[in-house]
Every structure is written in C-alpha cells, then in structure tokens.
Design a protein around this nucleic acid. Structure first.
Length: 887
RNA sequence: GGUCGCGUGGCGCAGCGGGAGCGCAGGUGCCUUACAAGCACAAGGUCGCAGGUUCAAAUCCUGCCGCGACCACCA
C-alpha cells in the first residue's frame, strides 16, 4: 500500500472536515426539500449492520449505492431521509460475548441471565458504534441524529405488538416439532439459517436381528450415516413396493445394545434403491423419521440432551458426546458381529450458520409463525409490480422462495434478544401474550412465569422499515409513516432475499397494509481476487478502511459502484479502485487549472461564443441525460462510465485544451466568456459526480467562485436539469468539433510515426469538400494549437506538398509536412495496409447491400446507414488508390 | 435433483439482433507551466464448443464443455 499512498498523507485528514461540515449543517437529517420535488419524500432504510460487525466490502458497496441514490434525490429536491441503525443480532452477538467470557474463564450459566444480558449490552456499547463510524468515513449521508437499534425501547414495543397481534390472530402458535438444533449455541435455528456442506462420511450397514429368525434370514441390514442414533430407534421402515422385505413387514426386530423390540413397517418415503432399502427410524432425531413415526404410531425416544450428549438410561453410552457415542456403538456392533460392512460416501451435513458446528435435528417445544395467511399479499406485491426488483430476474427468486415457504420457527433458546411476551400460570393453566408484563395471574392471582425464550433476530428485522418510523407506539397512523411510507429504495445482497426482504414485505402487508419499499436493488456479491466469496477463513478479504486510507473514500466508492452491473457476482479488482482514485485526481487537477485561470473573472451566465463552447455544452447536456437515465434504471456501471468518459475524454482532453489559448489571449471579452463557461461546465459536472464522489466534488465546489444565490454546499445544490440543458444540444457544433478532433488526430499520428518531437511545428494542409474546408480554416487557431501546426490550410483542390505524409479519413485527407523526413517505402506500406482493410470492409458491405433478402427485409434506417457507410468507404478507397498511384 | 447466472484481447469487465468496446498491464515517444496517479501514438480478440432460427447472431433458441450462486434432498 505504500506505493498507493504516494503523494497523499491521509485522505481522512481532508475528508473529515467536509463530513463534519455536512453534519453541522444538518443536511443528513430529513431535508426540507426544494424545487419541484419539495413535497415528495425519498426514504431509504439501511440494512442494519450487526453490532458485532465491522465494515466489509459488501457494506462498502451497498452503502455506496444507497448514498448515491439518496444524495441524488436530495439534490433533486426531494425530502430525503436515510434511516440508519444497527441490529442486535441475537445469536451472533451472544456467540461473541460467550467467547469473550470464556476467555475470562466465565460460563454464562454461572453468571445468570440478567448479568449476561448486561454483558451483551456492554458489548453493544463498545462495538455498536464501530461500524457506524466506518459508515461515516465513507461519507454516507445517513440520518445519524436518529440512529435506530432493533432493541431500543420503541423497537421492542413494536416487536411485542406484532407478537401479541399474531398470537391473538392465531398466526403464532406453539408446537413440538423437530427443529434444527445447534448443540453449541444450545438453541433452535430456522431452516433458512442452516447451511449444508458436502462432507466425506460413511454409510454403516448394521444388522438388526429378527425377533423370530428364519432359516437363511436372521437379521435385517439397515444403512445409516448416524449409527449413534440407533439408541433411539423405534422402528425399521421399508418401501411398500419392495418385494425383498414384503414378508418381513409386520414382524419385529430386537434392537441390539438396548434390547428393544421394534416393528418393521412399510412407508412410501423409503427409497428401495438407496442403501439396503431398509431404514432405521429415529423419530426424535430426524425430521423424516419423525413424520414416518407419526404415520406408523411409533414411540419417540429422545437420546440427546441440549448439548447432544446421550441422556441417562443408556448405560455406558450415557454422558457420551454424539461422536463418542458413534464410535462406541460401532465398536459394540462390531464386537457382536452385527456390523455388516462400512461404505464410504459423500453426503451433506447441516451446520449452524453462526458457529458452524453440525446441527442436530431435535424434538422440542418451539414457537412458530403460520405463514399461510402471510404469503399471498407478499406474492401479490411483487406480481402486481408494486415492488420491483433490479435486476428483474430476482423477482422469480423471491416468488420461488415464498412458494416453498414453510412455517417459521421463531423461538430461540438464547438470552440476548426480544423475550417472548407469553405468560403462563402453572396453577390454573392460564396463558396469554401481553403488551405489559404481569406478575400475578389475572384469573387465579397466583404468580405467573414468562416464556424463557427470545425471538429470532429476523423477527425484529422484518419490522425495520416501519418500526423505525413510529409504528410501535402509534401504529400505521404515526405521522412519519403517513408521510414517508412506503420507502423508495431497498438495496441489499441477494443472500438475505428470503430471510429479510420477503419477510419485510409480509410483515409490512400485515402491519401497514401496504408494501415496505418500491424498488429493491440486488447488488452483486463482492468476490475476492480468487473469484471466491470474500471471507475471513479464506483470507481473501479486503478491508474497506485500508482501501479508503490508500485511495480515498471517493476512489473506493467510484471504483466499487462502477462495477455494479446486473451480474450476480463481481470480482474485487483493486486496479479499478486505483483507476477511480486517478479519476478523482484528474478532476482535482482540472479544477486547479480552472482556478489558476480566473484572473479578471466576474460572475455571469455561460455564453456559447465558439464552436468549442457549443460542443461542450451539447456534450454536457447529453451526459446529464445519460446519467439520469442510468440512475433511473439502477444501472450504476453505465452511470459511472458516462461520467468517466465525459469528464476525462471530453472535458479534460479537449475542452480544457481548447480553452488554453483563449485564456491567454488579449480578447478580454472572449477570455471572460471562456472562464464563465469553464466554471459553468465544471460546476454542472461536480453536481453530476457528487453522489458517487462526494468529498472531492464538495472540496472543489468550495473553491469555485459562486453566484449569490448558489447553494452554500454542493450536497444541497440543485441537480443538473436535463430538460433545461437540452436547449444546448447542437449537432452542428458536434460535427465541427469532430472535424477538428479528426485533423488533430491525423497530425499527431503522423508526428508520432516519425518520432518527431511534440514541440516541432508542422505545416498542415487539408483536402476536403468546400464546406468542410471552410470550417477547418475557421478553426485554424484550435487546430494549430492542439496539433502544434505552423500553419493550417484547407481547400477542395489542395495538393499534397512535397515531403508530406497523407492521413486518409472518410471525409478528408490530412497532409502533414514532415520536413524531408518521409520514408516513402514505409508510407507506401502503411497506405497499402489501410487500402487492404478498407477494401475488405467495402466488399463485405457491398455483398450485404446486394443481398435481395437484406434489401427486402431490413429496416430502412439500417439500409440507409449501411449505404452511407458504403459510399464513405468507397470514397476512402478512391483516395487511398490515388495516393498510392501518386507515390 | 431443481432454479438462475457467467464463459468477449495477457488480467478484470461492459455490450446482449444490424459498425467488437472500457479500465489495467505490456509497446513507442514525451517531465508540452492542470495532472508522469499524466500526455500522445500504435499494437492486441474468427466474443467457450457444436448445431439451429434470421436477410443479418457476441447478442435469440437447443445441446455440450467449463466455472459459480441459490433452493431442495440424500437412511
């Protein structure tokens, strides 16, 4: 990084004060709006980062997108608000705090619930602000003054309200089910939170002796990947269509080690093709087995405690961990001669998405959300086009997710989170979900107890768009919600499409009776340089803070957003960030040039005095239109590309160069016009660029001379008005300046081929038809200054001077006098190469144009275009032929 | 198993029915008083493979090969 920081002590040093100034002016709080959009709101809610987190590339990208949107909206005069806050992240935070306590030799059970929650609170106070500070370093214009938190009192009220509502509506219910249990976190987790990974494993083939052995058939062989669970087996299932076992259905086997008599039965779930076709059934430890067990009326025997150790009652196996039990069971079968054989297989294993330990399907009493009533409105919201995805194809992913949605397990056996507001009276059996805590039973007056569990973090996250705006206390009538709901944009990563996006829509439809947001931007996932997702364990991650230190917040922002295409993944490319940093530098230098040439400047409107002026105004108008279109379509890469090309290749490469002579001239009026025009174009450009590069643009804006009624800071300066600027569009001027650029290019090319010094002046003669020749003569000053020409002449009958080289363009020939240095053989070869290429292109076109099918069916404008091009090439070929003949 | 995405110059990517483009790297020449993190000029690709549709295919369809994501499931 040392190389990268060359010439810049620290970006933060000059970025910081600009950020402070924005904050001090209160621009980040809900803006009052101005101009045409004064009354219209524009709200974004940030996906709340976890309090455990630090900023990673995904945040950096996502927050750049949101800030660009909100800044543009602010400049366009909307009332903007970007709601910021953090998520308490129940299981993630609890895991971290557990780990920290463990380092001090403390177990959370020793200190108890209350003390542990306090530790979590302490953690939040210490780390909860880290990521917010990092978001500030990026320059994000969030409403920091009203920071939200998913466990604030207001938010907790909202969560409780929804729980109580759903409880009374029967949407929330309690049930004993097989859930994904994490024995490390000792909690249930939702299906969405389980991660599958393929692992090498074994398929153990175990012999279960028949209760009544027959000749040649003494046992049934079952295949299992989890031999330890045989302790809880209560049946053996076979496929109803499997003839091999038809005679055995209805008989019993004696379960080894525990001497339990269990039935053999048929169930459609069994696949006769897999394993031995006979399946051991453990209803307490497998979801499918549980279902089979229910159908067959089997007992359910729980063999594991909450940490996946074998419970009492299983002799020497009791107290063993699941791994120890596995080894012991297999060894015991082997000893008894009941281990048939072992097969190596690869199978997928569920892991906890937080601690990555293997999950245990475990039967337990949990709270669920019945999603059947919530699905339809959420589907309708997207199918009707009220909620739009960008890119569109993500709508299908969303709908598929909804379609396959099953009831949602929302209880977690954790301490850090929203405690389930259900109270029980053990004395009389009274149970209810309540908004206010109670101590005594309202029926019998005996003491009550509250449910020990807390809610899934996503249960609170689903309320984020409206609980942050007063729903908890005032419901949908809250003034903010009346005025600023639904929000406009949600930008997020695709991996939480179901976990978060869909649930917000469901919750919003229920609570608010409407959608939570209109446009959902699904941005690409940032991959490491190796093309794999960035992760700590892989070591391919990049710290955004380091990037900002090296390339500036603007460089990082522009570099990242310029890679946001419709793709699902983007490989992180530091060179792109460097390139963006260079771009920022380019603008700074262009601005410096303008500022250094302000002698005698007085404010005034832009004035198109020359073709160069008309040209840059026209190009500016086009750029504004293109940038607007790209933003409106959420095409961020196209937006960045427009800005880059306009600023670098048009404004800097040509207009500033055109301006140099005028700024040195004695014509004070023209100099002033040029100054005003430069200031105007730069000012408009800064506005256009500000949403993605807020710091450098704000910094330059501060140095520019301003009119009295200009905005105090760029962040609230009006966005360029494409409609007003469209008056500047000028095809004539574009054509004229294109001619200048062509001539200059031809001369430069000639000079470069002969290795002449850029300082050596050369005489330039152009042969072109009358109108174009006059035009070129009129632009003599521009051409000679940029091409370093001693003279420029143009005429329809111009003759190539002795010792000149010819550049053949479609509408002109440019003769550059090489002062006797011409290598005729070399020139001939070059012209011949060009001739061959033009000939080839021409032949292709002529073939196309003589194709009757093409003439009959192609669009007229295509035919016209190709015809013009054919004529063009024919003209060029003629000129090349003539030149070659002459030599 | 299902759904989706991607294979374009050395690298990273855009374009997605009518002229193959951008950034970076590499080449040549320039410290031209805005900028060497720069300027100028040149070079580099039969757009994964095979079919098909079309007057016309990098672009649409089908199949194959190679990556990748998500969902489901595996006793």
């Amino acid at each position: 990084m040392a190389e990268a920081t060359k010439g810049t002590e620290s970006y933060a040093a000059w970025e910081g004060p600009i950020f402070e100034a924005w904050m001090a002016h209160g621009y980040f709080q809900r803006s009052q709006g101005f101009g045409d959009h004064g009354a219209e709101p524009y709200t974004i809610v940030i996906p709340p980062p976890n309090v455990t987190g630090v900023l990673h590339m995904g945040h950096a990208l996502n927050d750049t997108i949101q800030d660009a949107c909100i800044r543009r909206a602010r400049m366009r005069g909307f009332q903007t608000r970007w709601i910021l806050g953090t998520d308490h992240a129940g299981i993630a935070t609890q895991t971290k705090v557990d780990k920290r306590l463990a380092e001090q030799g403390i177990n959370r059970r020793e200190i108890g619930r209350e003390a542990f929650v306090q530790e979590c609170q302490k953690w939040r106070d210490e780390y909860g602000t880290t990521i917010v500070n990092q978001i500030k370093a990026m320059g994000c214009s969030c409403d920091y003054a009203h920071e939200q938190f998913t466990m604030s009192p207001e938010f907790s009220l909202a969560v409780r309200r929804l729980f109580v509502d759903w409880y009374h509506e029967g949407i929330i219910y309690r049930g004993k089910r097989i859930v994904n249990w994490c024995p490390h976190c000792t909690t249930a987790i939702a299906d969405d939170e389980a991660e599958y990974a393929d692992e090498a494993g074994h398929l153990w083939h175990l012999r279960y002796p028949l209760e009544h052995p027959q000749e040649g058939c003494e046992y049934v062989v079952v295949a299992t990947t989890r031999p330890e669970t045989m302790l809880g087996d209560t049946g053996v299932a076979v496929s109803p269509s499997d003839e091999r076992y038809a005679d055995l259905v209805g008989q019993n086997v004696i379960l080894p080690l525990v001497d339990r008599t269990i039935p053999i039965f048929a169930d459609f779930h069994v696949d006769a093709e897999y394993g031995t076709g006979a399946v051991k059934v453990t209803p307490a430890h497998d979801a499918n087995d549980h279902a089979m067990g229910q159908r067959a009326g089997l007992d359910t025997i729980n063999i594991f405690d909450e940490t996946a150790h074998v419970v009492e009652g299983f002799g020497r196996f009791s107290g063993m961990s699941r791994d120890e039990a596995r080894d012991a069971v297999v060894a015991a079968f082997d000893e008894l001669g009941l281990l048939d054989h072992i097969e190596d297989i690869s199978h997928s294993v569920m892991h906890c998405y937080r601690c990555h330990n293997a999950l245990e399907p475990w039967l337990s009493e949990q709270w669920f959300v019945d999603v059947s009533r919530l699905k339809a409105p959420a589907r309708e919201a997207v199918e009707s086009g009220q909620v739009r995805f960008h890119p569109e194809r993500w709508a299908q992913v969303y709908l598929d997710w909804l379609e396959n949605l099953k009831d949602w397990c929302i209880s977690r056996q954790l301490w850090w989170g929203h405690r389930i507001p259900v109270f029980f009276c053990d004395a009389c059996g009274w149970t209810d979900a309540l908004l206010e805590d109670v101590e005594a039973c309202p029926v019998c007056g005996k003491p009550v107890r509250q449910d020990e569990d807390v809610l899934d973090t996503w249960f609170s996250s689903q309320l984020w768009p409206f609980a942050t705006q007063g729903w908890g206390e005032l419901g949908a009538d809250a003034p903010d919600l009346q005025a600023f709901y639904p929000t406009q944009v949600l930008s997020t990563a695709r991996d939480i499409m179901g976990l978060w996006v869909a649930r917000m829509v469901m919750a919003s439809e229920y609570c608010m009776g409407q959608i939570p947001f209109q446009d959902v931007i699904i941005h690409p996932t940032v991959m490491g340089a190796d093309g794999k997702p960035m992760s700590k364990s892989r070591g391919n991650g990049i710290d955004p803070m380091e990037l900002m230190a090296a390339f500036g917040a603007d460089g990082m922002r522009f570099g990242l957003i310029s890679q946001v295409t419709g793709s699902q993944a983007m490989r992180f490319d530091q060179q792109r960030i460097e390139s963006a940093r260079n771009f920022a530098n380019k603008i700074k230098n262009a601005a410096r040039f303008v500022m250094l040439n302000m002698d005698g400047f007085t404010p005034g409107p832009p004035e198109a005095k020359t073709d160069a002026d008309r040209w840059i105004f026209s190009r500016l108008a086009r750029a504004v239109r293109a940038v607007d279109a790209a933003y409106d379509a959420f095409e961020f890469s196209a937006m960045a590309q427009e800005l880059y090309t306009f600023i670098w290749n048009e404004l800097c490469d040509w207009y500033i160069e055109f301006s140099k002579a005028r700024l040195k001239s004695d014509d004070a009026a023209d100099r002033l016009a040029c100054q005003r025009n430069l200031r105007f174009v730069l000012d408009q450009t800064l506005r256009l660029l500000h949403p993605v590069m807020p710091f450098i643009t704000e910094s330059i804006y501060a140095d520019l001379p301003h009119e009295a009624d200009d905005a105090e800071m760029l962040i609230v300066a009006p966005w360029p008005d494409a409609e007003a600027l469209s008056a500047f569009e000028d095809a004539q001027a574009e054509r004229r300046i294109q001619a200048v650029i062509s001539v200059v290019g031809a001369v430069r090319s000639a000079r470069s081929r002969y290795g002449l010094s850029p300082k050596q002046e050369l005489a330039v003669t152009v042969k072109a038809e009358e109108g174009l020749a006059q035009l070129i003569c009129a632009q003599e000053a521009l051409i000679s200054s940029l091409a370093v020409a001693s003279s420029v002449s143009a005429a329809p009958d111009a003759v190539k001077p002795e010792g000149a080289v010819a550049g053949i363009l479609s509408d002109m020939e440019v003769y550059t006098d090489m002062a006797g240095l011409v290598d005729f053989a070399e020139e001939r070869a070059k012209l011949a190469r060009e001739q061959a290429k033009v000939k080839k292109d021409l032949e292709k076109l002529e073939k196309k144009l003589s194709n009757p099918g093409f003439l009959a069916k192609a669009a007229p404008e295509i035919i016209a275009k190709d015809t013009a091009k054919r004529d063009d090439l024919a003209g060029q070929l003629e000129k090349l032929d003539a030149q070659l003949a002459q030599m």
